[in-house]
C-alpha cells in the first residue's frame, strides 16, 4: 500500500474504533491528528512494534474495499481481524485511545479541562464545618471503631 492508502485506511479503521456520536456529540477517532498520534504513541508503547502496519495489511487483504463499506460492515471485518490478531488489535486499540484522549479538544467534551492541570488545577470548594459536622455525626455517635489492645 502507498502511504496515502495506508493513511486513508487507518482513518476509516479509527472511525470504528471510537465512533462519533452520543449525547456529547463526540467526534470519532478518524481524524488526521489521531492517526498521526497513533504512530507517535508507538514510542510510548511496550507493545510489539509494527502492530498497526500488520493489521492494516491484514485488513486490506481481507477486505480490499474496506474504506467504502458501511460502518456496520467495517465493524464486522474488524471483529474478524481482532479474532485473528488479538495482540496486535489490542495494541491498536491502546494506541488509538492514547492518541485520541491526549487531544486537548477532546477532554472538555467529557468534562475535563483542556489545559495542563498545573498550575491552575480545578476549583473545589472545601466543605463547610457545618456540613462536615453533619456528615460525620453518625460515625462519631457510634463511638470507638478500633480494636483496643
Amino acid at each position: 500500500m502507498s502511504t496515502s492508502e495506508t493513511q486513508a485506511l487507518l482513518l476509516k479503521v479509527l472511525e470504528e474504533i471510537i465512533p462519533a456520536g452520543g449525547a456529547r456529540r463526540m467526534p470519532s477517532a478518524g481524524m488526521k491528528a489521531v492517526a498521526d498520534g497513533v504512530l507517535t504513541a508507538t514510542a510510548y508503547s511496550n507493545g510489539s512494534p509494527g502492530a498497526v502496519t500488520r493489521l492494516l495489511e491484514a485488513i486490506s487483504m481481507k477486505s480490499p474495499d474496506f474504506p467504502i463499506l458501511s460502518p456496520d460492515a467495517r465493524v464486522d471485518v474488524l471483529k474478524v481481524i481482532e479474532a485473528d490478531h488479538p495482540a496486535d488489535f489490542t495494541e491498536l486499540v491502546r494506541l488509538t485511545y492514547t492518541a485520541y484522549y491526549s487531544r486537548p479538544e477532546i477532554r472538555p467534551l467529557l468534562g475535563v479541562a483542556a489545559h495542563p492541570v498545573h498550575p491552575d488545577g480545578y476549583l473545589v470548594e472545601p466543605e463547610s464545618d457545618a456540613l462536615m459536622d453533619e456528615l460525620t455525626r453518625p460515625v462519631r455517635a457510634r463511638g470507638t471503631a478500633y480494636r483496643q489492645v
Binding site: I18, P19, G21, G22, M26, T90, V93, L110
Partner: peptide, 18 residues
C-alpha cells in the same frame, strides 16, 4: 485492560465515565 472499542466504547465514555 482497555475498555471495549466501537459502539460499546461510545456508550461507556458517554454514560459511565462521567
Amino acid at each position: 485492560n482497555p475498555i471495549p472499542w466501537g459502539a460499546k466504547h461510545r456508550e461507556i465514555m458517554d454514560n459511565v465515565y462521567p
